[in-house]
Amino acid sequence: GKMTGIVKWFNADKGFGFITPDDGSKDVFVHFSAIQNDGYKSSDEGQKVSFTIESGAKGPAAGNVTSL
């Protein structure tokens, strides 16, 4: 299901970062391709987002990331 969290950091040059879930669980990796914004796929530190957890090649990753 959908979770909410805060972007801990995001490196636009490398195209990835981490989200800290609101439920206190482990930080989740986020790749720019998962960000659902139109246009520039980046996110700012401290941005509140909703997301799903997908199982990626390197473990859990955020999917369907949407700014709230």
Rank of each mutant, 00 (worst) to 15 (best):
residue 30 V to H: 03
residue 11 N to S: 10
residue 14 K to T: 07
residue 13 D to Y: 12
residue 10 F to E: 03
residue 21 P to E: 01
residue 14 K to G: 06
residue 5 G to T: 01
residue 19 I to D: 00
residue 37 N to G: 14
residue 61 A to Q: 15
residue 16 F to Q: 00
residue 60 P to H: 07
residue 4 T to L: 08
residue 59 G to Q: 04
residue 53 I to V: 10
residue 39 G to K: 10
residue 15 G to M: 05
residue 55 S to V: 14
residue 32 F to V: 13
residue 52 T to M: 07
residue 21 P to H: 02
residue 18 F to W: 10
residue 60 P to K: 09
residue 29 F to L: 04
residue 38 D to F: 13
residue 9 W to G: 02
residue 31 H to F: 08
residue 46 G to Q: 07
residue 35 I to E: 03
residue 4 T to I: 08
residue 47 Q to F: 10
residue 21 P to C: 06
residue 68 L to T: 08
residue 28 V to W: 03
residue 17 G to P: 00
residue 27 D to L: 06
residue 3 M to H: 10
residue 54 E to D: 08
residue 41 K to Q: 10
residue 54 E to G: 06
residue 7 V to Q: 01
residue 2 K to Q: 09
residue 22 D to Y: 05
residue 15 G to I: 05
residue 17 G to K: 00
residue 52 T to Q: 07
residue 24 G to Q: 05
residue 22 D to L: 07
residue 34 A to F: 05
residue 53 I to Y: 10
residue 37 N to Y: 13
residue 39 G to F: 13
residue 25 S to N: 06
residue 11 N to M: 02
residue 31 H to Y: 08
residue 2 K to D: 04
residue 46 G to A: 07
residue 1 G to P: 13
residue 48 K to C: 13
residue 2 K to I: 12
residue 21 P to T: 05
residue 5 G to C: 06
residue 52 T to N: 07
residue 47 Q to A: 12
residue 17 G to Y: 07
residue 67 S to I: 15
residue 37 N to I: 13
residue 14 K to L: 14
residue 33 S to Q: 06
residue 34 A to V: 09
residue 1 G to I: 13
residue 37 N to S: 13
residue 6 I to F: 10
residue 13 D to M: 12
residue 67 S to M: 15
residue 29 F to N: 02
residue 21 P to R: 01
residue 58 K to D: 07
residue 31 H to Q: 04
residue 7 V to A: 00
residue 27 D to R: 03
residue 49 V to L: 03
residue 59 G to H: 05
residue 9 W to A: 01
residue 30 V to M: 13
residue 4 T to D: 01
residue 58 K to V: 07
residue 64 N to F: 09
residue 2 K to M: 11
residue 7 V to T: 01
residue 16 F to T: 01
residue 31 H to N: 04
residue 67 S to T: 12
residue 39 G to Y: 11
residue 3 M to A: 06
residue 39 G to S: 11
residue 51 F to R: 00
residue 55 S to K: 13
residue 17 G to D: 01
residue 43 S to V: 15
residue 42 S to P: 11
residue 50 S to G: 05
residue 38 D to I: 13
residue 43 S to D: 07
residue 54 E to S: 10
residue 39 G to E: 09
residue 26 K to V: 10
residue 10 F to K: 00
residue 49 V to R: 00
residue 56 G to F: 08
residue 14 K to P: 02
residue 17 G to F: 06
residue 26 K to G: 12
residue 32 F to H: 11
residue 33 S to T: 12
residue 44 D to T: 15
